[in-house]
Amino acid sequence: MCNLETEGTKYACGHYAITRKLRKIDCNLDTCIHSRRHHMPCYNCDYHEKFLGPDAKETVTAYSKDFCDQCSVWYKSRR
């Protein structure tokens, strides 16, 4: 599973939102669709790893006193 090094914003709710992807760390597996070793065209992609792993490195570049977009919607619907 490939991973990313990212920069982003940390919100008051605790969530981290990516604002910039700095680098991809390749897992070098031909069964991961994000890897440079994955064969294209691929006829079995339904069975292969489609998601990136957790960020290998998260650099917080900004802090927000607000909730992230998803939490704002959730909290507003609870009122």
Rank of each mutant, 00 (worst) to 15 (best):
C42H: 03
C13N: 11
S35C: 09
D66H: 14
D55K: 00
C42Y: 00
G8K: 00
I33H: 04
L22N: 07
Y63Q: 11
T59I: 12
N44Y: 11
M1T: 11
C71F: 06
K50F: 04
G8L: 00
D69I: 12
P54V: 01
W74R: 13
A62Q: 12
R78F: 13
D46T: 13
L52I: 11
S77T: 14
S64W: 09
D46V: 14
T59D: 07
F51K: 12
D46Y: 10
C13R: 07
C71D: 09
Y16T: 03
C68Y: 07
K24I: 04
C27T: 07
E7L: 02
K65T: 15
Y11H: 12
R78N: 13
R20Y: 05
T61L: 06
I33M: 08
Y11N: 01
Y47D: 15
C13T: 09
E7S: 11
Y63W: 11
A12T: 04
R79S: 13
S35D: 10
A17N: 12
T9A: 02
Y47K: 15
H38P: 07
K21P: 01
H38R: 01
A56Y: 09
K50H: 13
A12N: 13
A62N: 10
L52V: 07
K24H: 05
I33Q: 05
C71T: 12
D55I: 00
A56C: 08
R78Y: 12
K10D: 06
C42M: 05
F67G: 04
L4D: 00
V60H: 06
G14R: 06
T59V: 11
T59S: 04
T6F: 01
S64M: 08
P41M: 04
E58G: 01
H38Q: 07
Q70I: 13
A56L: 05
F51Y: 09
F67V: 09
K65Y: 10
H38K: 03
L52M: 11
R20K: 14
V60M: 02
P41N: 07
L22G: 00
L4C: 05
L29W: 09
H48P: 04
C42N: 15
S77C: 10
D46K: 14
S77P: 01
G8E: 06
C27A: 05
D46A: 14
Y47R: 13
L22E: 07
K50T: 11
R37M: 14
C71K: 05
W74P: 00
K50D: 12
K57E: 12
D66I: 04
D46M: 09
R37D: 15
S64N: 10
S72V: 05
P54I: 02
R79E: 14
E5V: 08
V60T: 13
C27G: 06
T9N: 07
M1E: 10
C42A: 10
K21F: 03
Y75E: 15
G14K: 08
L22A: 00
E58C: 01
Y43H: 15
K24V: 03
H34W: 11
D69T: 14
V73I: 15
C68W: 04
E49G: 01
N28A: 07
C27E: 08
Y75P: 00
N3C: 11
L4F: 06
L22T: 07
C68S: 08
